[in-house]
C-alpha cells in the first residue's frame, strides 16, 4: 500500500499514463473514469497535488505526474 485510496490511485495512474508535455485535462480524466463524479475527481487531484504526486501545467485544469 502507498497510503492512497483506490480512487486516488486510479486518478494517479491515469495522470501517469499521459505522455503529453501539458499533461491530461481534468475532463479527459472524467471521460476515462466514467463512473466517477467531477467533484470526486477534483478532490483526488487536489490531494495528489498536496502530496506532490502531481502538478498543474499550462493552466489549473491540466495535470502531470512528478514521477515520469
Amino acid at each position: 500500500s502507498n497510503g492512497l485510496s483506490a480512487t486516488q490511485n486510479q486518478v494517479l495512474s491515469l495522470i501517469r499514463s499521459c505522455p503529453d508535455a501539458q499533461g491530461i485535462h481534468i475532463h479527459d480524466l472524467k471521460q476515462k473514469l466514467s463512473g466517477m463524479s467531477i467533484a470526486v475527481i477534483k478532490q483526488a487531484v487536489e490531494f495528489l497535488c498536496n502530496e506532490g504526486h502531481v502538478f498543474s501545467t499550462i493552466d489549473e485544469e491540466h495535470f502531470r505526474s512528478t514521477d515520469n
Partner: peptide, 30 residues
C-alpha cells in the same frame, strides 16, 4: 500543438515545486 517557452517555463517551475513538496511529505513520514 507545441508549447510556448513561457508554458514550458511554467510547467518546469510547477514540477520543481511539486518534487519539493513530495520530498517534504516523505521526510514527514519517516
Amino acid at each position: 500543438g507545441s508549447l510556448t517557452a513561457e508554458q514550458q517555463r511554467r510547467i518546469e517551475e510547477n514540477r520543481q515545486r511539486a518534487l519539493a513538496r513530495r520530498a517534504e511529505r516523505l521526510a514527514q513520514q519517516e
